[in-house]
Design a protein around this nucleic acid. Sequence first.
DNA 1: AGTTGTTTTAAACAGGTGTTTAAATAAACA
DNA 2: TGTTTATTTAAACACCTGTTTAAAACAACT
Lengths: 211, 211
Amino acid sequence: MTQTDTKTRILDCAEQMFARAGFHSTSLRKLTQLADANLASVNYHFGSKEALLQAVIERRLLPLNKIRHKKIEEIITQAREQERPPAAADLLQAFVVPTLEFRNSSPGAQDFIALIGRSLSEPDETVRHCFLSLALPIFQFLFEGLRQALPQIPAAILLARLQFIMGTMSHVMCMGNLNAFQKPDFPEALEQNVLMDQMLKFIQAGLEAPL
Amino acid sequence: MTQTDTKTRILDCAEQMFARAGFHSTSLRKLTQLADANLASVNYHFGSKEALLQAVIERRLLPLNKIRHKKIEEIITQAREQERPPAAADLLQAFVVPTLEFRNSSPGAQDFIALIGRSLSEPDETVRHCFLSLALPIFQFLFEGLRQALPQIPAAILLARLQFIMGTMSHVMCMGNLNAFQKPDFPEALEQNVLMDQMLKFIQAGLEAPL
DNA sequence: AGTTGTTTTAAACAGGTGTTTAAATAAACA
DNA sequence: TGTTTATTTAAACACCTGTTTAAAACAACT
């Protein structure tokens, strides 16, 4: 087989189009045309448009979540061995850095990160639920780690701060370095690495803000 | 006239449905049915569905932005009179607090805030551009104030931090106190006022994070 | 080569979309 | 009051949507 098979060709195009134009604004006709496949092939290979979205998200998110889980676990066990609570900054890095590395790993991954960045604030139940059901376990695991790291912060407040962090992250991830405020006299956008470094500093400071 | 006129009835329903289901997922047939108006009345009164969205956003955002502009201006002139730079925390409050007060002013306003909270990360050009064109001036004005407040922070980094803040805000504003992570053993969501207070502390700490 | 199972194809299906039209109604003003 | 403007209405327009069907093409294997 000289080229990629239909199923992954559809997955790749769906990832790109869902991320850039949105799930509902992407029609199966435009999608299959771009993927050089027949209209019916989506329903043949995936069952429905919604199931295609699920497949798009699962393909990348399951492996990514495994890495994030492992990294967080490492931080926690390492702290336990040294009989000290884990550092909040380390836990945040264990969650964020794999996401960024993954994002830079391929062009499709970048679209994917934008897609899940948007999923958190998606008005449509379909998309949001599809993403949340896969993302909840890792959020919970991170939260448990942060509880150990910052026991002086009440649980409800810590949870709120974790949500603020998710808001910042999802915003940065779907905007990328594409500056929304771009205006002639405005400073130029930061380089990708610097931007991510700044984001980490921002959310670390916010997480440990005085009560 | 015993009840509100058709035009504002359509605006009210559009605000609610655009916020809760999204712009593209809201059909004019469902919308006019809920508004107890004829299908053609949207095109008669507003010209098109897109122009209706514009009207929905303008109706609330123009007055809100006037208030925000005035509050920020007060902080700046007050600081100038005392021959000191404005405090970053004051500027942030001047921007955020009117938004929250406005949000609590009416049920429709709450939907509206969710709508513009989502607009920032909207995949569709139509919605995003419609919102951004109205919001950019106030963002710029706030940015100029923050430049005076925090001259030690390079402009590009300050701009990035302002974007992080917008990410946090827009996330909180479309989620409200509706906790996305809701799970049996998770702490209960904070009360609205407490949540907003925490958000302010979070973004203030992030804004002034060490370089 | 012939058969079996998988994949692709074009066409049709049933229903939804925003928008336009022209006639009917209501409101405003003389 | 009659006349003119503003609004409402039902119907049709042209097009797009996800999904299904049955026939065709391809693949693999005995």
